[in-house]
């Protein structure tokens, strides 16, 4: 598939979406209707466009040090290997002496190996509704995630450092603060609840946790943007009325370790589509 044809496909997808969503709005259960539509959409997933860009970026010699990530970045599966890397992160990386999720690790490689400045990447790490293009880091994460399509989550929780991140993430999800006394668990701590019509997964269960990480990175039809798990965590804290989690910080990794770890043994379907 070349980029031009996937661009065309993107347009036709958006048109189909508009029609289908208006039909779904009149249906009795919009959630079920949307899920059905999304399953059909994933046959020609717009996320592929971003995977292709990400692959080019992964293999290109770039940055002040003019090296590629393919020849310098170890995601835990050997130098430059992306296969099965995403479903095995967060993991502990000795060279950084830190537990890192996929996005945090790629940023670390861009800074340490290619010589990019962290602040330049962190300045605008997520695609906004008015941006034509996703940031490079989003394309890279999408490419790396595509290397784990249809593989089982296998976060190494037996590693004490990963286990610490998992347990700290669990405590972070339960931490109530801010003007509304909200925690992650206010919405995501029990089964079978909704906000308005939106179903809320219980992140403490395997079935709920997989819903929290499945489909990310995802092509979000609201706004037509490509977004990662880092963005999803950021937007949860916005709605929680918290201040902002710093980009690619340990606090975000801890939460992703908790959610991904609880998803262990379940199949990750690859970059997806979100409403």
């Amino acid at each position: 598939m070349n980029i031009a044809s996937s661009g065309l496909r993107l347009l036709s997808c958006t048109a189909a979406l508009a029609l289908s969503l208006s039909a779904a709005a009149q249906a009795k259960d919009p959630n079920a209707e949307f899920e059905k539509f999304r399953a059909e959409m994933e046959e020609s997933n717009p996320a592929e466009l971003f995977e292709i860009k990400g692959e080019e970026l992964w293999k290109a010699r770039r940055g002040p040090k003019n090296v590629s990530l393919a020849e310098s970045c170890d995601l835990g599966q050997g130098m430059g290997k992306v296969e099965a890397a995403y479903v095995k992160m967060p993991r502990y990386f000795a060279d950084a002496d830190a537990v890192m999720d996929a996005e945090r690790r790629i940023v670390w490689c861009m800074v340490e190996k290619q010589g990019f400045k962290f602040d330049d990447i962190a300045k605008k790490p997520f695609q906004g509704g008015n941006d034509n293009n996703a940031p490079e880091i989003t394309n890279l994460v999408t490419y790396v995630a595509s290397g784990s399509r249809n593989m089982k989550f296998d976060i190494p929780l037996g590693d004490p450092k990963v286990r610490d991140a998992f347990e700290t993430g669990k405590a972070t999800a339960a931490y109530r603060a801010g003007p509304y006394d909200f925690s992650c668990n206010t919405c995501h701590g029990v089964d079978g609840k909704r906000i308005r019509m939106q179903n809320l997964p219980n992140l403490a269960t395997p079935e709920g946790a997989i819903k929290g990480v499945q489909g990310w990175p995802g092509y979000r039809m609201t706004g037509g943007v490509m977004l990662t798990s880092q963005w999803r965590m950021n937007d949860c804290f916005r709605q929680q009325r918290f201040p902002e989690p710093k980009y690619a910080s340990q606090a975000v990794t801890n939460l992703l370790t908790y959610m991904s770890g609880n998803s262990n043994g379940q199949i990750y379907k690859g970059p997806g589509i979100k409403r």
């Binding site: 405590a171 931490y175 918290f242 201040p243 902002e244 989690p245 606090a251 801890n254």
Partner: peptide, 18 residues
């Protein structure tokens, strides 16, 4: 829980009215 609180205090930053 204390580790979570310490990490949150270090890793969150003011934004807008928050």
């Amino acid at each position: 829980r204390q580790m979570a609180i310490d990490t949150i205090k270090r890793d969150f930053q003011a934004k807008g009215q928050a």
